[in-house]
Protein backbone atom coordinates (compact mmCIF):
# COMPACT_ATOMS: atom_id res chain seq x y z
CA UNK A 1 0.00 0.00 0.00
CA UNK A 2 1.59 3.28 -1.10
CA UNK A 3 1.91 6.16 1.30
CA UNK A 4 0.79 9.59 0.12
CA UNK A 5 4.27 10.71 -0.96
CA UNK A 6 4.65 7.53 -3.04
CA UNK A 7 1.18 7.99 -4.48
CA UNK A 8 2.02 11.50 -5.66
CA UNK A 9 5.26 10.19 -7.14
CA UNK A 10 3.36 7.48 -9.00
CA UNK A 11 0.88 10.04 -10.34
CA UNK A 12 3.73 12.25 -11.54
CA UNK A 13 5.32 9.23 -13.18
CA UNK A 14 2.00 8.54 -14.88
CA UNK A 15 1.96 12.20 -15.95
CA UNK A 16 5.45 11.95 -17.43
CA UNK A 17 4.59 8.83 -19.36
CA UNK A 18 1.08 9.67 -20.49
CA UNK A 19 0.11 13.30 -19.99
CA UNK A 20 3.01 15.17 -21.52
CA UNK A 21 4.58 16.37 -18.27
CA UNK A 22 8.18 17.32 -19.10
CA UNK A 23 9.07 19.73 -16.33
CA UNK A 24 8.87 18.87 -12.63
CA UNK A 25 10.95 21.27 -10.61
CA UNK A 26 11.52 23.07 -7.36
CA UNK A 27 14.01 23.27 -4.51
CA UNK A 28 15.60 19.81 -3.89
CA UNK A 29 13.03 18.25 -6.21
CA UNK A 30 15.56 16.58 -8.50
CA UNK A 31 18.25 14.03 -7.60
CA UNK A 32 19.75 13.20 -5.21
CA UNK A 33 16.98 14.15 -2.77
CA UNK A 34 13.82 13.88 -4.86
CA UNK A 35 11.89 16.30 -2.67
CA UNK A 36 12.06 16.94 1.05
CA UNK A 37 9.16 14.50 1.42
CA UNK A 38 10.43 12.23 -1.42
CA UNK A 39 7.41 12.95 -3.60
CA UNK A 40 9.58 13.39 -6.72
CA UNK A 41 12.19 10.65 -6.25
CA UNK A 42 13.29 8.85 -9.38
CA UNK A 43 11.19 10.89 -11.80
CA UNK A 44 12.64 11.28 -15.28
CA UNK A 45 11.95 15.00 -15.59
CA UNK A 46 12.47 16.19 -12.00
CA UNK A 47 15.12 18.86 -11.58
CA UNK A 48 16.56 21.24 -9.02
CA UNK A 49 16.16 24.97 -9.49
CA UNK A 50 17.47 28.09 -7.79
CA UNK A 51 16.18 28.84 -4.30
CA UNK A 52 13.69 31.35 -5.64
CA UNK A 53 9.95 30.89 -5.20
CA UNK A 54 9.11 33.78 -7.53
CA UNK A 55 11.27 32.26 -10.22
CA UNK A 56 9.54 28.91 -9.68
CA UNK A 57 6.03 30.26 -10.17
CA UNK A 58 7.11 32.56 -13.01
CA UNK A 59 8.79 29.62 -14.74
CA UNK A 60 5.70 27.46 -14.34
CA UNK A 61 3.48 30.18 -15.80
CA UNK A 62 5.71 30.78 -18.80
CA UNK A 63 5.96 27.04 -19.45
CA UNK A 64 2.19 26.69 -19.20
CA UNK A 65 1.65 29.52 -21.68
CA UNK A 66 4.10 27.81 -24.03
CA UNK A 67 1.92 24.70 -24.00
CA UNK A 68 3.84 22.63 -21.45
CA UNK A 69 2.09 21.13 -18.45
CA UNK A 70 4.62 21.88 -15.71
CA UNK A 71 4.45 20.66 -12.13
CA UNK A 72 6.32 23.01 -9.81
CA UNK A 73 6.88 22.69 -6.10
CA UNK A 74 7.03 25.28 -3.34
CA UNK A 75 9.00 23.39 -0.72
CA UNK A 76 6.61 24.32 2.11
CA UNK A 77 3.42 26.37 1.88
CA UNK A 78 4.99 28.52 4.57
CA UNK A 79 7.19 29.96 1.78
CA UNK A 80 4.45 30.65 -0.72
CA UNK A 81 3.48 34.05 0.65
CA UNK A 82 5.94 35.97 -1.54
CA UNK A 83 4.39 34.59 -4.73
CA UNK A 84 0.76 35.42 -4.03
CA UNK A 85 0.71 38.06 -6.77
CA UNK A 86 2.13 35.60 -9.30
CA UNK A 87 -0.46 32.99 -8.33
CA UNK A 88 -3.05 35.72 -8.83
CA UNK A 89 -1.71 36.27 -12.33
CA UNK A 90 -1.78 32.55 -13.03
CA UNK A 91 -5.34 32.44 -11.74
CA UNK A 92 -6.55 35.50 -13.58
CA UNK A 93 -4.82 35.23 -16.92
CA UNK A 94 -7.61 33.26 -18.60
CA UNK A 95 -10.09 35.86 -17.41
CA UNK A 96 -8.03 38.99 -18.07
CA UNK A 97 -7.29 37.80 -21.60
CA UNK A 98 -10.88 36.94 -22.36
CA UNK A 99 -10.02 33.25 -22.54
CA UNK A 100 -7.07 33.69 -24.90
CA UNK A 101 -4.46 32.25 -22.57
CA UNK A 102 -4.90 29.20 -20.39
CA UNK A 103 -2.37 28.39 -17.69
CA UNK A 104 -2.27 24.61 -17.26
CA UNK A 105 0.19 24.29 -14.40
CA UNK A 106 0.23 22.46 -11.10
CA UNK A 107 1.88 23.94 -8.04
CA UNK A 108 2.24 21.41 -5.27
CA UNK A 109 3.21 22.27 -1.75
CA UNK A 110 3.17 20.65 1.68
CA UNK A 111 0.63 22.34 3.93
CA UNK A 112 -0.52 22.45 7.53
CA UNK A 113 0.67 21.31 10.92
CA UNK A 114 1.25 18.04 12.70
CA UNK A 115 4.98 17.47 12.19
CA UNK A 116 6.23 19.64 15.07
CA UNK A 117 7.06 22.15 12.38
CA UNK A 118 6.99 25.25 14.58
CA UNK A 119 6.31 28.68 13.15
CA UNK A 120 7.49 28.16 9.55
CA UNK A 121 6.55 24.56 8.82
CA UNK A 122 2.97 24.53 10.08
CA UNK A 123 1.15 27.17 8.07
CA UNK A 124 -2.05 26.62 6.19
CA UNK A 125 -2.97 28.72 3.18
CA UNK A 126 -6.57 27.72 2.46
CA UNK A 127 -8.29 31.06 2.88
CA UNK A 128 -5.74 32.95 0.77
CA UNK A 129 -5.57 30.19 -1.84
CA UNK A 130 -9.34 30.10 -2.17
CA UNK A 131 -9.41 33.85 -2.78
CA UNK A 132 -7.14 33.55 -5.80
CA UNK A 133 -10.08 33.25 -8.15
CA UNK A 134 -9.47 31.31 -11.32
CA UNK A 135 -7.02 28.98 -9.61
CA UNK A 136 -8.29 25.59 -8.49
CA UNK A 137 -7.28 24.28 -5.08
CA UNK A 138 -7.21 20.65 -4.01
CA UNK A 139 -6.13 18.86 -0.85
CA UNK A 140 -6.27 15.06 -0.52
CA UNK A 141 -6.44 13.05 2.68
CA UNK A 142 -5.66 9.57 1.32
CA UNK A 143 -2.97 8.24 -1.04
CA UNK A 144 -5.52 7.11 -3.64
CA UNK A 145 -7.22 10.50 -3.65
CA UNK A 146 -3.77 12.13 -3.92
CA UNK A 147 -3.05 9.96 -6.95
CA UNK A 148 -6.36 10.72 -8.65
CA UNK A 149 -6.33 14.41 -7.79
CA UNK A 150 -2.81 14.82 -9.16
CA UNK A 151 -3.76 13.17 -12.44
CA UNK A 152 -6.85 15.37 -12.74
CA UNK A 153 -4.83 18.45 -11.81
CA UNK A 154 -2.27 17.75 -14.53
CA UNK A 155 -5.04 17.28 -17.10
CA UNK A 156 -6.86 20.47 -16.11
CA UNK A 157 -6.31 23.62 -18.19
CA UNK A 158 -6.63 25.94 -15.18
CA UNK A 159 -3.77 26.43 -12.73
CA UNK A 160 -4.16 24.08 -9.78
CA UNK A 161 -2.69 24.45 -6.31
CA UNK A 162 -2.17 20.96 -4.95
CA UNK A 163 -1.92 21.10 -1.16
CA UNK A 164 -0.16 18.10 0.37
CA UNK A 165 -0.96 17.70 4.07
CA UNK A 166 2.50 17.42 5.65
CA UNK A 167 1.28 15.20 8.45
CA UNK A 168 -0.28 12.70 6.03
CA UNK A 169 2.53 12.29 3.51
CA UNK A 170 3.82 9.16 5.25
CA UNK A 171 0.40 7.67 5.98
CA UNK A 172 -1.12 4.79 4.05
CA UNK A 173 -4.68 4.29 2.99
CA UNK A 174 -6.66 1.10 2.59
CA UNK A 175 -7.17 1.36 -1.18
CA UNK A 176 -4.63 0.27 -3.78
CA UNK A 177 -3.55 2.61 -6.55
CA UNK A 178 -4.47 1.01 -9.88
CA UNK A 179 -1.39 -0.96 -10.95
CA UNK A 180 0.38 -0.76 -7.61
CA UNK A 181 1.87 -4.06 -6.28
CA UNK A 182 0.06 -5.51 -3.25
CA UNK A 183 3.08 -5.58 -0.96
CA UNK A 184 4.35 -2.44 0.76
CA UNK A 185 7.91 -3.80 0.76
CA UNK A 186 7.72 -4.67 -2.89
CA UNK A 187 6.68 -1.13 -3.84
CA UNK A 188 9.38 0.35 -1.63
CA UNK A 189 12.06 -1.81 -3.30
CA UNK A 190 10.82 -0.66 -6.69
CA UNK A 191 10.46 3.09 -6.27
CA UNK A 192 12.17 4.33 -3.08
CA UNK A 193 15.75 5.55 -3.51
CA UNK A 194 18.31 3.68 -1.40
CA UNK A 195 20.05 5.31 1.55
CA UNK A 196 23.59 6.38 0.64
CA UNK A 197 24.92 6.60 -2.90
CA UNK A 198 22.04 6.98 -5.33
CA UNK A 199 23.98 7.97 -8.39
CA UNK A 200 23.46 4.59 -10.10
CA UNK A 201 19.95 3.97 -8.83
CA UNK A 202 16.96 3.87 -11.12
CA UNK A 203 13.39 3.17 -10.05
CA UNK A 204 11.41 0.23 -11.43
CA UNK A 205 8.02 1.73 -11.99
CA UNK A 206 4.92 -0.42 -11.63
CA UNK A 207 2.47 -0.10 -14.50
CA UNK A 208 0.09 2.35 -12.88
CA UNK A 209 -2.96 3.36 -14.85
CA UNK A 210 -5.27 6.28 -15.32
CA UNK A 211 -7.44 7.23 -12.37
CA UNK A 212 -9.15 10.57 -11.92
CA UNK A 213 -10.64 12.18 -8.87
CA UNK A 214 -12.59 14.93 -10.64
CA UNK A 215 -11.76 18.43 -9.44
CA UNK A 216 -14.72 19.90 -7.59
CA UNK A 217 -16.03 16.57 -6.29
CA UNK A 218 -16.15 15.80 -2.58
CA UNK A 219 -16.73 12.34 -1.17
CA UNK A 220 -18.65 10.96 1.76
CA UNK A 221 -15.99 9.01 3.61
CA UNK A 222 -18.37 7.90 6.35
CA UNK A 223 -22.12 8.10 5.95
CA UNK A 224 -24.42 9.14 8.72
CA UNK A 225 -27.80 10.68 9.43
CA UNK A 226 -27.53 12.78 12.61
CA UNK A 227 -24.76 15.29 11.89
CA UNK A 228 -22.36 16.32 9.12
CA UNK A 229 -18.66 17.18 9.36
CA UNK A 230 -17.28 19.00 6.33
CA UNK A 231 -13.51 18.80 6.28
CA UNK A 232 -10.42 18.10 4.21
CA UNK A 233 -6.73 17.25 4.34
CA UNK A 234 -5.15 16.54 7.69
CA UNK A 235 -8.45 16.92 9.57
CA UNK A 236 -10.26 14.35 7.41
CA UNK A 237 -8.81 11.20 9.04
CA UNK A 238 -9.30 12.78 12.46
CA UNK A 239 -12.95 13.43 11.65
CA UNK A 240 -13.30 9.87 10.44
CA UNK A 241 -11.84 8.47 13.66
CA UNK A 242 -14.09 10.71 15.70
CA UNK A 243 -17.15 9.63 13.74
CA UNK A 244 -16.28 6.00 14.40
CA UNK A 245 -15.54 6.63 18.07
CA UNK A 246 -18.90 8.32 18.55
CA UNK A 247 -20.94 5.72 16.68
CA UNK A 248 -22.90 4.78 19.82
CA UNK A 249 -23.83 8.44 20.43
CA UNK A 250 -24.90 9.44 16.95
CA UNK A 251 -24.54 8.74 13.29
CA UNK A 252 -22.06 11.21 11.81
CA UNK A 253 -21.52 11.83 8.12
CA UNK A 254 -17.99 12.85 7.12
CA UNK A 255 -17.70 14.87 3.92
CA UNK A 256 -14.11 14.99 2.68
CA UNK A 257 -14.05 18.00 0.36
CA UNK A 258 -10.88 17.04 -1.58
CA UNK A 259 -11.37 20.17 -3.76
CA UNK A 260 -11.62 23.53 -2.06
CA UNK A 261 -12.03 25.39 -5.35
CA UNK A 262 -14.32 24.65 -6.95
CA UNK A 263 -16.04 23.05 -4.00
CA UNK A 264 -18.79 20.47 -4.11
CA UNK A 265 -21.63 22.53 -2.73
CA UNK A 266 -24.23 20.10 -4.03
CA UNK A 267 -22.86 17.25 -1.94
CA UNK A 268 -22.33 19.45 1.15
CA UNK A 269 -25.84 20.83 0.81
CA UNK A 270 -27.42 17.41 0.42
CA UNK A 271 -25.69 16.15 3.55
CA UNK A 272 -26.68 19.18 5.64
CA UNK A 273 -30.26 18.91 4.41
CA UNK A 274 -30.28 15.31 5.54
CA UNK A 275 -28.75 15.84 9.02
CA UNK A 276 -29.67 19.44 9.89
CA UNK A 277 -26.49 19.66 11.94
CA UNK A 278 -23.09 20.63 10.59
CA UNK A 279 -19.55 21.20 11.76
CA UNK A 280 -16.99 22.75 9.43
CA UNK A 281 -13.55 21.52 10.44
CA UNK A 282 -10.13 22.62 9.24
CA UNK A 283 -6.73 23.46 10.61
CA UNK A 284 -6.38 27.01 9.33
CA UNK A 285 -6.74 29.97 11.64
CA UNK A 286 -10.02 31.59 12.61
CA UNK A 287 -10.85 35.04 11.12
CA UNK A 288 -11.78 34.85 7.43
CA UNK A 289 -11.27 31.12 7.54
CA UNK A 290 -12.49 29.27 4.42
CA UNK A 291 -14.93 27.34 6.65
CA UNK A 292 -16.51 30.67 7.55
CA UNK A 293 -17.49 31.13 3.91
CA UNK A 294 -19.15 27.72 3.87
CA UNK A 295 -20.86 28.55 7.13
CA UNK A 296 -22.25 31.80 5.73
CA UNK A 297 -23.53 30.04 2.67
CA UNK A 298 -25.13 27.40 4.86
CA UNK A 299 -26.94 30.10 6.81
CA UNK A 300 -28.07 31.83 3.61
CA UNK A 301 -29.26 28.78 1.74
CA UNK A 302 -30.12 26.21 4.40
CA UNK A 303 -31.33 28.29 7.35
CA UNK A 304 -34.69 26.59 7.55
CA UNK A 305 -33.23 23.13 7.18
CA UNK A 306 -30.86 23.56 10.11
CA UNK A 307 -31.88 22.01 13.40
CA UNK A 308 -29.18 23.80 15.38
CA UNK A 309 -26.65 26.55 14.74
CA UNK A 310 -23.89 25.50 12.36
CA UNK A 311 -20.38 25.46 13.80
CA UNK A 312 -16.73 25.92 12.88
CA UNK A 313 -13.76 24.25 14.54
CA UNK A 314 -10.38 25.46 13.31
CA UNK A 315 -6.98 26.75 14.32
CA UNK A 316 -6.66 29.59 16.78
CA UNK A 317 -5.88 33.00 15.33
CA UNK A 318 -2.28 33.33 16.43
CA UNK A 319 0.63 34.56 14.32
CA UNK A 320 2.05 31.06 14.17
CA UNK A 321 1.91 27.52 15.49
CA UNK A 322 4.30 27.10 18.42
CA UNK A 323 6.88 24.33 18.54
CA UNK A 324 6.09 22.84 21.93
CA UNK A 325 3.46 20.11 21.68
CA UNK A 326 1.59 21.92 24.41
CA UNK A 327 1.36 24.98 22.18
CA UNK A 328 0.68 23.16 18.90
CA UNK A 329 -1.99 20.93 20.39
CA UNK A 330 -3.74 23.89 21.93
CA UNK A 331 -3.58 25.95 18.74
CA UNK A 332 -4.66 23.27 16.24
CA UNK A 333 -7.78 21.11 16.58
CA UNK A 334 -6.92 17.69 18.00
CA UNK A 335 -9.03 14.52 18.04
CA UNK A 336 -10.48 15.20 21.54
CA UNK A 337 -11.46 18.70 20.39
CA UNK A 338 -13.22 17.26 17.36
CA UNK A 339 -15.05 14.70 19.51
CA UNK A 340 -16.08 17.39 21.97
CA UNK A 341 -17.39 19.58 19.16
CA UNK A 342 -19.33 16.69 17.63
CA UNK A 343 -20.85 15.71 20.97
CA UNK A 344 -22.01 19.26 21.49
CA UNK A 345 -23.42 19.36 17.96
CA UNK A 346 -25.33 16.12 18.51
CA UNK A 347 -26.58 17.12 21.94
CA UNK A 348 -27.78 20.61 21.06
CA UNK A 349 -31.59 20.50 21.39
CA UNK A 350 -33.30 21.14 18.07
Amino acid sequence: MANMAQAIRLALHYGEENLGVREIFGEDVGPPLGGVFTATQGLKHAWNCPLDERGIIGAAMGLAWAGFRPVAEIQFVDYIFNVIDLLKLAGNSAWTTGGRFKTPMVVMTPTGSGIHGAVYHSHSFDSIATKIHGMKVVCPSTPLDAYGLMISSIKDDSPVLFLKPKALLRTRGDELIPGEPEGEKELKAMIDAPIGDRSKWKPKWPKVTDYEVPLGKAKVSHSGTDATVVTHGRMAPIALEAARALESEGSIEVVDMRSLIPYDWDLIKASIKKTGRVLFLNEETEITNFGEHLLRRTVDELFYELKVRPRLLCGKATPGVGLSSVLENFTQPQKPDVERALRELLADPA
Binding site: R54, G58, A59, M61
Partner: peptide, 13 residues
Protein backbone atom coordinates in the same frame (compact mmCIF):
# COMPACT_ATOMS: atom_id res chain seq x y z
CA UNK B 1 8.33 43.29 -13.38
CA UNK B 2 6.36 40.03 -13.13
CA UNK B 3 7.02 39.57 -16.85
CA UNK B 4 10.69 38.99 -15.98
CA UNK B 5 9.58 36.03 -13.85
CA UNK B 6 7.29 34.51 -16.48
CA UNK B 7 9.96 34.99 -19.16
CA UNK B 8 11.93 32.28 -17.37
CA UNK B 9 9.24 29.77 -18.32
CA UNK B 10 9.13 30.39 -22.04
CA UNK B 11 12.93 30.66 -21.88
CA UNK B 12 13.02 27.09 -20.56
CA UNK B 13 10.59 26.02 -23.29
Amino acid sequence: ETQYATAIGTGIA
